[in-house]
Nucleic acid binder design. Sequence first.
DNA 1: ATAATTGTTGCAACTCGGTTGCATTTTTGA
DNA 2: TCAAAAATGCAACCGAGTTGCAACAATTAT
Lengths: 147, 147
Amino acid sequence: MLTLQNAGISKTSQRLAVLNILLKATKPLSVSTIRQSIEKEADIDKVTVYRILSLFRKRGIIRKIASAGGANYFEIATLENPLHPHFSCRNCGALTCLAPLPFTKAPELILSKDDYSIDHIEINISGLCACCRNTAKTKTSLHQREE
Amino acid sequence: MLTLQNAGISKTSQRLAVLNILLKATKPLSVSTIRQSIEKEADIDKVTVYRILSLFRKRGIIRKIASAGGANYFEIATLENPLHPHFSCRNCGALTCLAPLPFTKAPELILSKDDYSIDHIEINISGLCACCRNTAKTKTSLHQREE
DNA sequence: ATAATTGTTGCAACTCGGTTGCATTTTTGA
DNA sequence: TCAAAAATGCAACCGAGTTGCAACAATTAT
């Protein structure tokens, strides 16, 4: 089970609130959505939310999803919720989760998903380029950069 | 050959400048990069750049690539430059183009690309969700939304 | 218990990407 | 040549995200 304790994060009411929102969510949430959801229970500054999300990401318990709209979205990253593609609607902007799938099944997805009309498939692979990997061995600044 | 004329776009010096920058580029460019490149030749307002890029996208001659850093990137979309995955470096943020590939080859990419260290693969499929497709048939506002 | 240190939050101010409204200029076309 | 339409520039604005600093825990050492 995913708790702050076994993620090695000291327990505060704000962190608990953010974690619970994300655990309850069925799709990735933006920071503004997270804050609005918490507002009913507690009060929390937006900076604190960003810091908590950054911490959660460093501990590997959440994932960040980039959207073309500018805002980032966050979702729980556990074994029960493995990496999976997302569908973002061009019209309403909603971001929903698709079933996790091996890459060989990607063409099937494109052909079979007839409740979506797909007009753009974006594959973003992130990591470290050759240039940065080389300089990484000497520099220490590598793992400090967020995104 | 890709010109403003056969894209059905009336010719202005600003549009020509933006198009030429994109044609010369070997990787997707951000708006700020585009402006800096043009600065040497002409002077152009950032709003104008956004409007030109929006127009180009409506005409289908460029593609937009979302990055986790918030900014969007743009590249020429011709038959000679088909849709392809991009690699974004977590450290320096650079966005580079990968070879276009059929989806069945995706696993090979992951295994063979050893000059990159991959820590996150993002598949973003965008289009129209079932909900919006239904309302689309009655509403006219559908194709007006950018994104 | 108290003082010192460390971690966490909140506030204000700021940066950056992108948009909107409007006035001005340029282009088009009768 | 003159009016209408299109394109640009400017200012002001918005939302996402960051930074610096003060205030406030919470912890640890003395």
